[in-house]
Design a protein around this nucleic acid. Structure first.
Lengths: 232, 232
DNA sequence: CGCAGCCTTGACAAATGTCAACAAACGTGG
DNA sequence: CCACGTTTGTTGACATTTGTCAAGGCTGCG
């Protein structure tokens, strides 16, 4: 594995506190690979052979059942995915594919389980990471069950605006069809939802979104830290 | 804390492997309390002062937003809840209330965080527990996003039947209004969904459910281990 | 240029929620 | 034990939300 990638992985919260020798043991047999866009990295149901780390690009976690498909999360650099399957030595619950050209580090799952059995500080970092992931999914669950699709879109846009620096105008950085899937609706419904938010001060032109009246939109969206804050 | 409760807690997978002294440190200041039904134990947004362990009875985890409310999970003996909030020292994302008369052990969250910083084997047990919880929520998320309410009900009944020993006939052990909330629909819609499953070999009388044609129901429900199996 | 994929729109269908009414089950206090 | 009121479950009628299908415009790319 090249030095720069090695460093990037080492600096992740998940790995930064562990002993040097543990980290070496972890990286034995690990490697970095470049993937083009739209490559399926893992398939749900497969055994979890590698813990993946997105170094650049982005990855879509999705799942299919009975001919339907839904996007569950987007992984952006620099973070890991399918940590839970790895530690439980259980099959992946989600599939993953690159959304764009991406560099991914692959760490043998066996190493992760072995090192975590020996290095308490690594185990502690994993606890923090998994607790965080768990809370994220709970928030997504609340978003889905407590809100209509219009409300989910409004809150998504407010979150996205904040994450993008708070400017009135910003870019959606994903395809609308995928956004629809993330938000749990059809592309057609998303199109109509964008129009449905116009009365609350929203303008959309292609992938460019402008919130002309944040107060009005928030009044409609009623964002809540226990659903919409990334860190709490 | 009484001896019997002490033992029950000690035998939990989460605590069984840790050193005796760690366990003692954990239990310092812990106590057991009996609650009647319908008591709100914790409220979402509150700081996580105690890790809770259900010793008997059952607990509903739910959440509210904008005048709506939804049940997210049921906790049955003997297991913990709100572990993630405890380890992150973050506010509860869900509220909890007793569904029936229940005995609950309360372990100061501070103890949990302190012991987990010192005892690697406890940290490892937490990793296993949290990974399990995470995977459960992912499955619930897939259930919600990939299936209609009729399909969710059908699969719920098949899961429940298996959990209850596989007999053709079994009891729903929760109120239908709550089941509706768990499944993400209204009580009215649930009533109709039960009738909608009659053609696939389902009979309902009060809280008693009989699956007269399991093959037909499964053909409709298409249960999937990556959504419906509790353990994988 | 021409194709393929995405986005949008309209018309329609299906799923789900809301409101109201009522029956059945339950718990409480007489 | 009964009477009473409260809660839950069911049903019907209806509204709203969401999905489906088909068509057309737009864009990007070979």
């Amino acid at each position: 594995m090249p030095d720069s990638a090695f460093k990037d992985v080492r600096n992740l919260a998940l790995f930064s506190q562990m002993a040097d020798e543990s980290f070496s043991a972890l990286m034995r047999g690990a490697f970095v690979q470049n993937f083009p866009a739209q490559i399926e990295l893992i398939t749900e149901g497969d055994p979890s052979d590698f813990l993946h780390v997105v170094l650049s690009g982005s990855v879509d976690l999705f799942s299919a059942w009975n001919g339907r498909e839904t996007s569950l999360a987007t992984i952006r650099p620099i973070s890991t995915f399918i940590l839970a399957a790895t530690v439980r030595d259980a099959p992946y619950l989600m599939s993953a594919r690159t959304l764009e050209k991406s560099r991914i580090a692959l760490i043998p799952s066996q190493n992760v389980r072995a090192v975590f059995d020996n290095d308490g500080s690594f185990a502690r970092a994993m606890v923090a990471e998994l607790a965080q992931c768990y809370r994220s999914v709970i928030k997504a669950q609340k978003d889905l069950k407590l809100r209509t699709s219009l409300e989910r879109l409004a809150n998504y846009l407010l979150r996205h605006q904040r994450r993008a620096g708070g400017a009135r105008s910003f870019e959606l950085e994903c395809e609308k069809r995928r956004l629809a899937s993330v938000l749990g609706m059809t592309p057609e419904n998303l199109s109509r939802a964008f129009r449905g938010l116009q009365p609350y001060g929203l303008q959309v032109d292609g992938t460019r979104v402008t919130i002309t009246n944040a107060a009005e939109l928030e009044k409609f969206a009623k964002p809540n830290p226990l659903i919409d804050d990334a860190t709490t």
